[in-house]
Design a protein around this nucleic acid. Structure first.
Length: 210
DNA sequence: ATCATGATGTTCT
DNA sequence: GAACATCATGATG
């Protein structure tokens, strides 16, 4: 299976994101390899996008976003989960595509070991589940997915039929709520349910009740 | 199927 | 201190 060339990622992020649907993410570890067919993604467009991690400029966490395309941006969130992006655009654009869901097409046994209580359908249905099933964590930060010998690679699959690609608002973000940069394959069972962002309530309210 | 809620700790203000 | 690109679970229809 051929690898995706760097030029694939070196385009505007809103163009790369839908093109990623149907492509394959492969991750090889000592335990084996898992292959995932991407079915749902979200585009984030650098410092001008209020929903992007690059919105307030470069930090230690988002540094890889400001580098060349075709690299992985992995971040830790909610105290327990990892999510994974692929850097897009020209070097310095700081745009990236969040990998939200996919279908495990090889290495399902290994993926199931990593998510023992999950049904097959839910193995990579959601960005944090995807990372868990694929074995993605801090160690995979900044890897070049266009490197043929690398452990983490983006492979050329069967691109999704353009007629089956849907677009809508991004999930769980507070800024730029309207921008329809979530893309998914219509009707695919591995696509995650949409959830609008809800601010968390603190334990105690300071308004005198309770 | 939906809804509500607690868990957890890093990052940024 | 507050926010956070989430998930599992338990209640309910």
């Amino acid at each position: 299976m051929p690898i995706l060339p760097r030029e694939f990622f070196d385009r505007p992020v809103e163009e790369v994101a839908p093109a990623l649907l149907g492509q394959i993410l492969a991750h090889r570890t000592a335990e084996g390899e898992v292959l995932l067919r991407l079915t749902e993604v979200e585009a984030y467009a650098g410092p001008l996008d209020a929903a992007s991690h690059a919105y307030r400029g470069r930090t230690a966490r988002n540094a890889v976003m400001f580098g060349p395309p075709g690299h992985s941006y992995v971040y830790f969130t909610y105290g327990m989960h990892f999510c994974m992006n692929l850097v897009c655009g020209e070097d310095g654009d700081a745009s990236a595509v969040l990998l939200r869901a996919g279908e495990v097409i090889a290495g399902g046994e290994l993926a199931a070991t990593r998510r023992p209580r999950s049904s097959v359908r839910d193995l990579a249905r959601g960005p944090a589940r995807l990372c868990q099933a694929m074995g993605i964590g801090r160690e995979q930060y900044g890897l070049d997915v266009c490197s043929p010998a690398g452990p983490l690679r983006a492979l050329a699959g069967e691109p999704a039929d353009p007629a089956s690609i849907m677009a809508g608002p991004r999930t769980g973000v507070t800024g730029a709520k309207e921008t329809p940069w979530r893309f998914w394959i219509d009707g695919d069972p591995s696509v995650s349910p949409y959830r609008a962002h809800v601010p968390k309530r603190r334990k105690a309210t300071a308004d005198g009740r309770g």
